[in-house]
Design a protein around this nucleic acid. Structure first.
Length: 771
RNA sequence: GGGCUCAUAGUCCAGGUCGGUUAUGACGUCGCCCUUACACGGCGAAGAUCCGGGGUUCAAAUCCCCGUGGGCCCA
C-alpha cells in the first residue's frame, strides 16, 4: 500500500499552490444574500517599516473569525481596507525626504505622502495575502480615496446641518517661531536650565502668606486656582480660602488635587492657562475659565496688563524684577526643567487656545452606554475599557486638525463677513485648492469665498468604516442587508478611540449600533514582555518570519500562544517550534493516506473510545469557536491529536489496520475510525491553519475545498472517555517496563491488562506484543 | 497621577467565577531508542517554596487587603 502522501514533512512552499487554487476558484468572493455576516475589519495604518508582527498575528486571527463563521453557514462579507489618513505618514515623509511639511507646497507634499503610503501599503497587502487572509484583498478600500473621503465629508455636512458641530477654543501646542501647531506626537522634552521662582501669595483677610514656586511667573495673569495635595497638612486649613495673586491682585481659590506633589517646590502649585499639559487637564477637570495670556504672535496679550506685547521670556525677566521690588519673592533657584519642545525645531512650545471645530458628544454618552450594554464583547472583560471611558468623557470631541494629509473639512468662508458655508453632500471637496461651489453668501450676499485649510481628526474617517463598507447612502439594498454589521474585531489599545468613536458616529447617523459583537485582542509584546518599538530595536519584522516558517505555522502559533484578549509575547523561537505540530499532523495524514477510504464499519471498543474522545474535542472546540477564541480549540486539538490520537490510538490499532491477526471487519473498523478522526481534526483545524488542512483534505478526502464544509458536530456515541486515563497510563507502564528491562518495543513482554481495560485486550496485545 | 490588566519550572501557557487528588500542556534541557506515519520522530527523566507580605478558612495558586514589577489607555 503506497501512501498518497510521499513527502516526509509539511513544506510551507505548498502554501503558494493552495493560495493559487483559492484565487483561481474565487473561493472567498462575496455575493450578497438575504442574510449576511459582515466583519468590520480594522483598516491597518501603514506608518513605517516593518509592519508590527503583533498586527500580522491580529489579522491572522481576524481571518480565523471569517473562516469560523463560514463553516457555521454564514454568508461572510469580509472587506479589507487600508487606513491612510493622518499624522504618521506626514512625519514619515518629512523624515524620508528631509523636508518640512509647512515649508513644502501642499499639493507636492500630499503627493510625496501618497507615494510613501503606496509603498508601505503594498508590503502590508503582500503580508496579508501570504497569511491567507480570506477577505477582499484584491478590491481593498482606502480611507484616503475620493469615495471614502466624500462619505466622511457628507456625514460631517449632515451633522453640521443638524447643529451638532460648533466652534470653540482648544489648547494647541504652538511653535511660535515657525508659526505652526504641533501634534502631541511631535513634542519631545529637553532638560533646560531655568529659574524656579518662589513667590509669596497673600491669603485673603489674613496676614498669612503662602509660598508658591513656578517656572512661569509671567503667567500669573492667567492663574485661576492654587492646588495642594490632599495629604499635605501644611495647607489643610487653607483649602477653600481665597488667595491673592501678586502684581495682578486677583482672587483665586485654593483646592486639593492629587497631581500636586508635596515635595516639589513648596507643595502648592499655581494653575494657569496654560503652563503645561497638566494645566490643560486641570482646567478641563475643574471646569475653569481660561485666560489667553500668550497670542498667536508669540507675545503676551492684553490680559498680561503692562507686560502685553513682550515675548514670554522678556515678560518673565521683567515680572521677576517687579516681584522682587515689591517683596513678593522668597527665593529663586536655578533648576533644570523638563521643557516640552518641538521635535524638529527644538523651540520650546507654548500651549495656546485656538478656535477649533467640535462635534457634540456629551449628549450621546448615555445612549452609547446603552448600545455598549447591547453589544457582546469577546472577551467580556474588555467592555470595561469602554464603560470607564464613557464615565470619564468631560468635553466634546475636537475634530479639526491643522495638518495636510487628511480629509479636508468642507467649508468655505465668505471673504466679506466670514460666514461659514458647507457645500452639498455627496462629492469630495478640497477647499484649500478648489473654487467655492457656493456662489452667494447667505448672510451678506458676498460672492468671494476662501476655503478652509484644516483637515479632520483621522478618527472622523475611521469611525465610519462600518458605514463605508456597507455602502451607506450609496446602495440602499446593500446597506439594508449588511448593516448593522456582525462583528468588530480590533486591538484593545484603541477601544477608547476607534471603538468608541464608531459607536458615537454610527449612532448619530443611523440611530443604530454598528455591530452586535466586538472582538478585542491583546497587545503583541517582545519575548521579554516589553513593548516593541523601532527605536528600542526589539521590533520583529513579520515578513521574513512568515517566509521562513510559513503562514500556517505562524497562525497556529498566534492561536496557541495566549488566551484571547490577553497580551502575548512574540518569540521567534516559539514560532519556529510550533512547526513541530504541523509536522505531526502531516505524518499522521501520511500514515492514513496509505489506507483506502471505508464507507462504513462497526467500531470496536477501542474505536468507540477514540470516537467519544473526538466528540469531547468537538464540543471543546465549539466552546472556543462560539466566542471566536482560537486559543481554546488550538490547545485542545494539539493535545488530542498528539497525545491521544497519535501516541495512543494509532499505536493501538496499527496492526489491526494492517490486518495482521484481525478479521476484515475489525480491520475496516480501524481504518474507518482513523479516517473519521483525521477528517474531523482537519475540519476543526481549518479556520486556524487553512493551508495544510486544505492540502490534506483535498489529497485525502474531497475535491471540494475544506473551507466550503460545515463544521463537525458531536455524534453522541457511547461515552468511553472514562477509560482514557487508564489507557494512557497502561501504555506508559508497558513502555517503561520494556525500557527498564532493556527490551526493544517490539519484544514480547508479560504484563497483565487491568480488569477495567479488558475490552481493549486484543488491541493492547498486538500493540505491545504481550505474551 | 488615574483606570484596566497581568505575575505559576530556564521559557511560554492551563487551572482561578464555584477554595479540597500528585498543579495542565507545549518549548527548551538531559538520557535511552531507527519501532513497516514521522529522528522535523518515539519513550523516559529532571525541573515550580504558584511575585512579596498580611488576612479569611479545617483547608488558599484559587477569595480579601497591602506592596513590588510588567503591559495598555488616559492625564
Amino acid at each position: 500500500m503506497d501512501p498518497k502522501i510521499s513527502e516526509k514533512a509539511w513544506n510551507p512552499d505548498l502554501e503558494q499552490q493552495v493560495l493559487k487554487k483559492w484565487e483561481e476558484t474565487n473561493l472567498y468572493d462575496f455575493v450578497l444574500a438575504e442574510k449576511n455576516y459582515t466583519i468590520d475589519t480594522p483598516p491597518p495604518y501603514p506608518s513605517g517599516r516593518p509592519w508590527h508582527i503583533g498586527a500580522a498575528s491580529h489579522y491572522s486571527q481576524i481571518d480565523m473569525i471569517a473562516r469560523t463563521a463560514r463553516m457555521t453557514g454564514k454568508n461572510v462579507y469580509f472587506p479589507i481596507g487600508i487606513d491612510r489618513n493622518g499624522l504618521p505618514v506626514e512625519l514619515y515623509t518629512e523624515k524620508k525626504h528631509n523636508i518640512r511639511m509647512r515649508e513644502t507646497e501642499r499639493g507636492e507634499f500630499l503627493n510625496l505622502c501618497k507615494e510613501a503610503l503606496d509603498d508601505l501599503e503594498s508590503e502590508m497587502i503582500q503580508i496579508m495575502k501570504s497569511l491567507g487572509i480570506s477577505g477582499g484583498i484584491k478590491d481593498h478600500y482606502r480611507t484616503d480615496s475620493e469615495e471614502y473621503r466624500a462619505l466622511t465629508q457628507s456625514t460631517f455636512i449632515e451633522l453640521w446641518k443638524k447643529g451638532q458641530i460648533y466652534l470653540a477654543n482648544r489648547p494647541n501646542n504652538y511653535d511660535w517661531v515657525s508659526g505652526t501647531t504641533i501634534a502631541d506626537a511631535e513634542i519631545t522634552y529637553l532638560d533646560l536650565p531655568t529659574k524656579l521662582v518662589y513667590m509669596k501669595f497673600g491669603v485673603k483677610d489674613s496676614e498669612r502668606k503662602i509660598i508658591i514656586a513656578s517656572t512661569r511667573p509671567e503667567l500669573l495673569c492667567a492663574c485661576k486656582t492654587i492646588i495642594v495635595n490632599e495629604e499635605d497638612e501644611r495647607y489643610a486649613d487653607l483649602v477653600g480660602k481665597k488667595i491673592l495673586v501678586p502684581i495682578f491682585d486677583n482672587e483665586v481659590e485654593i483646592r486639593t488635587h492629587h497631581s500636586a506633589q508635596k515635595e516639589f517646590g513648596s507643595g502648592a502649585v499655581m494653575v494657569c492657562s496654560y503652563g503645561d499639559q497638566n494645566d490643560v487637564a486641570l482646567f478641563r477637570e475643574l471646569k475653569l475659565e481660561e485666560i489667553v495670556a500668550i497670542g498667536l504672535d508669540g507675545k503676551m496679550t492684553e490680559a498680561a496688563g503692562e507686560y502685553a506685547g513682550l515675548k514670554p521670556k522678556q515678560a518673565r525677566a521683567k515680572i521677576i524684577e517687579d516681584l522682587e521690588q515689591n517683596n513678593f519673592v522668597e527665593k529663586i533657584e536655578e533648576i533644570s526643567h523638563r521643557t516640552p519642545v518641538s521635535e524638529r525645531s527644538k523651540n520650546p512650545i507654548e500651549i495656546i487656545p485656538m478656535e477649533e471645530y467640535y462635534l457634540k458628544q456629551m449628549d450621546s454618552v448615555e445612549k452609547i452606554k446603552g448600545l455598549g450594554k447591547e453589544i457582546t464583547f469577546h472577551p467580556e472583560m474588555h467592555k470595561q475599557i469602554l464603560m470607564n471611558w464613557l464615565d470619564s468623557i468631560s468635553i466634546d470631541w475636537p475634530i479639526s486638525r491643522r495638518r495636510y494629509y487628511g480629509t479636508e473639512i468642507p467649508i468655505w468662508y465668505c471673504k466679506k463677513c466670514s460666514e461659514p458655508h458647507v457645500p452639498e453632500p455627496g462629492k469630495y471637496y478640497r477647499p484649500w485648492k478648489e473654487e467655492s461651489p457656493i456662489s452667494n453668501c447667505s448672510k451678506c450676499n458676498g460672492t468671494e469665498f476662501v476655503g478652509e485649510e484644516r483637515t479632520f481628526d483621522t478618527w472622523m474617517d475611521s469611525s465610519i468604516s462600518p458605514l463605508f463598507v456597507t455602502k451607506f447612502q450609496k446602495d440602499e439594498e446593500f446597506f439594508k442587508k449588511t448593516y448593522p454589521t456582525g462583528i468588530r474585531p480590533q486591538a484593545k489599545d484603541i477601544v477608547r478611540t476607534w471603538l468608541y468613536y464608531t459607536l458615537l458616529r454610527c449612532e448619530q447617523l443611523t440611530g443604530k449600533k454598528p455591530w452586535s459583537e466586538a472582538w478585542i485582542m491583546g497587545y503583541g509584546l517582545d519575548e521579554k514582555g516589553m513593548k516593541m518599538s523601532k527605536s528600542k530595536g526589539n521590533a520583529l519584522d513579520p515578513l521574513p518570519v512568515i517566509e521562513r516558517i510559513g503562514a500556517d505555522t505562524f497562525r497556529f502559533w498566534s492561536a496557541s500562544e495566549a488566551n484571547h484578549g490577553y497580551d502575548f509575547r512574540c518569540s521567534e523561537q516559539k514560532m519556529d517550534s510550533t512547526k513541530k505540530f504541523l509536522s505531526k499532523l502531516w505524518n499522521v495524514s501520511r500514515f492514513l493516506s496509505s489506507f483506502p477510504l471505508v464507507e462504513s464499519a462497526t467500531p470496536t471498543d477501542t474505536d468507540k473510545w477514540i470516537l467519544s474522545e473526538l466528540d469531547k474535542l468537538i464540543s471543546e472546540c465549539h466552546k472556543g469557536y462560539e466566542k471566536y477564541n482560537f486559543f481554546v480549540p488550538a490547545i485542545a486539538i494539539r493535545e488530542f491529536t498528539w497525545n491521544l490520537f497519535a501516541a495512543n490510538y494509532i499505536e493501538m490499532v496499527k496492526a489491526r489496520a494492517y490486518g495482521i491477526g484481525f478479521s476484515d471487519e475489525e480491520k475496516n473498523a480501524a481504518i474507518f475510525t482513523l479516517h473519521k478522526v483525521l477528517s474531523t481534526i482537519l475540519k476543526l483545524l481549518a479556520p486556524i491553519t487553512p493551508f495544510i488542512t486544505e492540502h490534506l483534505w483535498q489529497t485525502l478526502y474531497s475535491n471540494e475545498s475544506i473551507h466550503k464544509q460545515r463544521q463537525a458536530q458531536p455524534e453522541s456515541p457511547e461515552d468511553y472517555t472514562s477509560f482514557t486515563k487508564e489507557i494512557t497510563e497502561f501504555n506508559s507502564k508497558v513502555w517503561n517496563e520494556k525500557k527498564s528491562k532493556g527490551l526493544s518495543l517490539k519484544d514480547t513482554i508479560a504484563i497483565d491488562i487491568p480488569e477495567k481495560l479488558s475490552v481493549f485486550s486484543k488491541d493492547f496485545a498486538s500493540m505491545h506484543n504481550l505474551s
